[in-house]
Write a protein that binds this DNA or RNA. Structure first.
Length: 482
RNA sequence: GGUGGCGUAGCCAAGUGGCCAAAGGCGACGGAUUGCAAAUCCGUUUAUCCUCGGUUCGAAUCCGAGCGCCACCUCCA
């Protein structure tokens, strides 16, 4: 079945084919975090979307080579190429070196990824580890005569690359008319951007390098161009990021690469929409205000905060999967609570199915194969239609409600679907410690004697210890809840 | 002001010309089961698909107008 993806380049759904027709390998570059702070749950939405994309490709039989960068230098506090470096600002604030800051927030990010069951990239690359590649690429642009020098750095002349506006679909005249951005003195066009920034003369930067143009640091956009080409070649299949990157960051990246190579760089561009947050305003106001979350703003929710509220990271993943990645989604505690209940119900059903499956033969009866295939096709159709996870989850729900198949056949399918959903649905409960098992036995004895008071006391005790008991016809089930 | 997008049940959310008297989830209600719970199972519930007009044999789906909301046009996933 063909895989169709919405390509920002062209603004339409397109059938996916690797560049080399005969090959099943796919190069995928995802813009990673700028590690000057923790990731918020809005950032994480994008990474979950990219993970679904990657898992869908793998599910379709492709070999994915996934590269993700870590921006640890050069990302300025505004885009007029005259703000401060976010990393340096943060280091100042926390009284640590920029290197410590980078290390700390990179680790935090990777830990979030792990908790959300996001598959790690094959290659992590840090901007500061690839300064030479970036300098070399700027030199290539220089040889093409597409750069110019100002007092504070080397700039890309967007007027010299006529295709510049194509990607962003920029209306240059409007951009000019609305020119609210204070331009760096001497910039030839409002869209021109810095490739290399010089260190300020009056101040020592923690991160700076020698270059043919003078001591300084790379502009933000050049790192993704240089590193993706380094690891994936001058042409590769997929590049993704947040929707906000279309206009400036990715447009600049495309320009930098294609101005040098003079051929199409990336075949498919995918962008994830924003997560907004319903922010309860003052108690007097009835309607919550919807605002997007900003890493520099104050409505900043981290995964840790969700955990503190009792939400499981994978329940957050489930929350995200219930909406399409190209639609804005509003986060609220209520919506998250509903998702968590849904997620727990889902897991309970799968858990029952699993117990049933463990009692049945591993071989699926022949007559069940067509039924399995029917579900599998429905699931595949959903994910292959531009990653329609809400529809895919509906197929999963229908599967769990189906009672025509054996537990074994159904459970195997659930595991298959979970390769894409990544919800760890079949996660095995951890073994119950002996002392817990003893208490359970004790309670069963009390129940037999109809000593309900004793039985309930033990049940409460176990609950406090993090184990929930579920009496069923087949005996007592134990669920670890913490 | 410019640009892009959205408006589907109490809430979240798929569907974008006939398979839709509209998927799925959450919630609510009734029942089975249970010592009580929990979980599970069965059943029920709620939609003139924002409004008005048009195109069409046929529209939630296309077109026009209006209303409302969101995002982007500093940085941001």
């Amino acid at each position: 079945m063909s895989l169709v993806l919405y390509n920002t380049m062209g603004r339409q759904k397109m059938e996916f084919f690797p560049i080399a027709a005969s090959s099943d390998s796919v190069g995928m570059y995802t813009c990673g975090p700028t590690v000057y702070n923790y990731a918020h749950i809005g950032n994480l939405r994008t990474y979950v979307f990219e993970d679904i994309l990657k898992r869908t490709l793998i599910y379709n039989g492709y070999q994915v080579k996934h590269v993700m960068n870590i921006t640890d230098v050069g990302h300025l506090t505004d885009d007029a190429d005259q703000g401060e470096d976010k990393m340096e600002v943060r280091a100042q604030k926390e009284q640590e070196t920029v290197w410590q800051i980078a290390e700390k927030y990179t680790k935090a990010f990777q830990s979030d990824m792990l908790e959300l069951n996001i598959l790690p990239p094959d290659i992590w690359c840090k901007a500061t580890d690839h300064i030479q590649e970036q300098i070399a690429w700027i030199q290539k642009l220089e040889q093409k005569g597409i750069t110019y020098r100002l007092a504070d750095g080397i700039y890309f002349d967007t007027a010299r690359f006529p295709r510049y506006r194509e990607f962003a679909q920029l209306d240059m005249e409007n951009l000019m008319a609305g020119a609210r951005v204070e331009m760096v003195a001497g910039k030839r066009n409002p869209t021109d951007f810095a490739l290399w920034k010089f260190s300020p003369e009056n101040q020592k930067r923690q991160m700076e390098w020698d270059s043919p143009w003078g001591k300084g640091f790379p502009g933000w956009h050049i790192e993704c161009s240089a590193m993706s080409v380094r690891y994936l070649g001058e042409q590769f299949e997929i590049h993704c990021g947040g929707i906000d990157h279309v206009r400036v960051h990715h447009t600049n990246e495309v320009s930098q690469v294609e101005a040098v190579t003079e051929k199409t760089w990336v075949k498919y561009w995918l962008h994830g929409e924003f997560l907004n947050i319903a922010e309860p305003k003052l108690a007097t106001e009835t309607k919550p205000e919807e605002k997007k979350m900003s890493k520099s703003g104050d409505n900043f929710l981290r995964l840790q905060l969700l955990k503190d509220k009792g939400f499981q990271p994978l329940a957050y993943r489930y929350f995200l999967l219930q909406a399409h990645y190209r639609k804005q989604l509003v986060y609220s505690t209520e919506a998250m609570g509903a998702a968590q209940r849904g997620f727990i119900n889902l897991r309970n059903k799968v858990s029952d199915l699993k117990q049933g499956a463990e009692k049945s033969p591993v071989e699926i009866a022949k007559q069940e194969k067509p039924m399995q295939e029917k579900f599998k096709q429905a699931f595949l159709q959903a994910i292959n239609d531009d990653l329609n996870m809400p529809a895919a989850l509906a197929v999963l729900s229908k599967l769990l409600d189906d009672n025509t198949m054996s537990s074994r056949a159904a459970f195997d399918l659930v595991c298959d679907f979970d390769r894409v959903a990544g919800l760890n649905l079949a996660a095995t409960e951890t073994a119950v410690p002996v002392e817990i098992q003893e208490l359970i036995t004790e309670r069963q004895a009390a129940r037999k004697q109809k000593n309900w008071q004793e039985a309930d006391a033990i049940r409460q005790k176990l609950l406090d210890a993090g184990y929930e008991l579920l009496d069923s016809k087949d005996g007592v089930k134990v669920k670890k809840i913490r």
